[in-house]
Simulated scan of single mutants.
Amino acid sequence: MATKLMSLSSIACLLLVGAFLHVASAVDYDVGGDFGWSLPPNPTFFSDWARNKTFFVGDKLVFRSKASETHDVAEPDGQVDLDGCVEPGISLSTSAVLSISLDSPRRRYFICTIGNHCNAGMKFAVDVFINPNSAMPPPPSSASSLRFGAVLAAAMAGLFFLLTI
């Protein structure tokens, strides 16, 4: 009888832990796919590439430039600046590869500020969403989340104790 109860308690604990630890994997996206971060064949190439994807917090955009080309990555402040290829104050060099983490849910804009590259189509925007299937950790200052964790731990310990006696 005790073995059966131990088995049931183990299964219950595994199910409970599994329910709380369901985490979706982040994705690294090579900007432009196999084409890379290069002068595009048409002005909508990168916008078309981004339109076919759903980006979530935790994903990364990987900008890969060909060794023979010089490009950078900059983040304009908004759609008007993206459309007008307005160069922001800070540009990030891509020498060969640059990885940018999508760290919060919002719309982000990217351009190349070298020469006329942006006007030639080296620009796009992405909408970043919270993945509903990921377990987001609570903010460090969240007392209610800490309280919930303590209550959950106590409940699991109590359940385990009751099932093993």
Results as ranks from 00 to 15, higher is better:
M1D: 15
A2K: 12
T3Q: 06
T3W: 06
S7P: 00
S10A: 14
S10E: 14
A12V: 04
C13R: 08
L15R: 00
L16R: 04
L16T: 06
L16D: 04
V17R: 08
G18I: 12
F20K: 01
H22E: 09
H22A: 07
V23L: 03
V23I: 05
A24Y: 09
A24M: 09
S25I: 05
A26N: 14
V27M: 10
D28S: 10
D30S: 08
G32K: 12
D34W: 06
G36S: 07
S38N: 10
P41A: 14
P41F: 14
P43Y: 07
T44H: 13
F46H: 10
S47D: 03
W49M: 10
A50M: 13
A50V: 09
A50F: 11
N52P: 07
K53T: 00
K53V: 02
K53A: 05
F55W: 10
V57P: 06
G58D: 07
G58R: 09
D59T: 09
D59H: 12
D59M: 11
D59L: 11
D59Y: 04
V62Y: 05
V62H: 04
R64C: 07
S65K: 13
S68D: 14
E69Y: 13
A74Y: 04
A74R: 01
A74D: 03
A74V: 02
A74C: 06
E75N: 13
P76T: 07
G78H: 12
G78R: 08
G78D: 15
L82R: 05
L82K: 03
D83S: 09
D83Q: 08
D83K: 11
G84Y: 05
P88Y: 10
P88M: 11
P88Q: 10
S91Q: 07
S91W: 04
S91V: 02
S93I: 05
S95H: 04
I100W: 02
I100Y: 02
D103V: 00
D103K: 03
S104Y: 13
S104Q: 15
S104G: 12
S104F: 09
R106K: 14
R108A: 01
F110L: 05
I111V: 13
I114V: 15
G115Y: 10
G115T: 03
H117P: 11
H117F: 15
N119L: 15
N119C: 14
A120M: 09
K123T: 06
K123Y: 07
D127C: 04
D127M: 08
F129P: 02
F129D: 08
I130E: 06
N131F: 09
P132C: 01
N133L: 12
N133P: 01
N133R: 11
A135K: 01
M136E: 07
P137E: 02
P137R: 03
P138W: 00
P138S: 00
P140L: 01
S141I: 00
S141M: 03
A143W: 01
A143H: 01
S145Q: 07
F148C: 02
G149W: 03
A150Q: 05
A153R: 04
A155I: 03
A155D: 00
A157F: 06
L159Q: 11
L159G: 10
F160V: 08
I165R: 03
I165G: 00
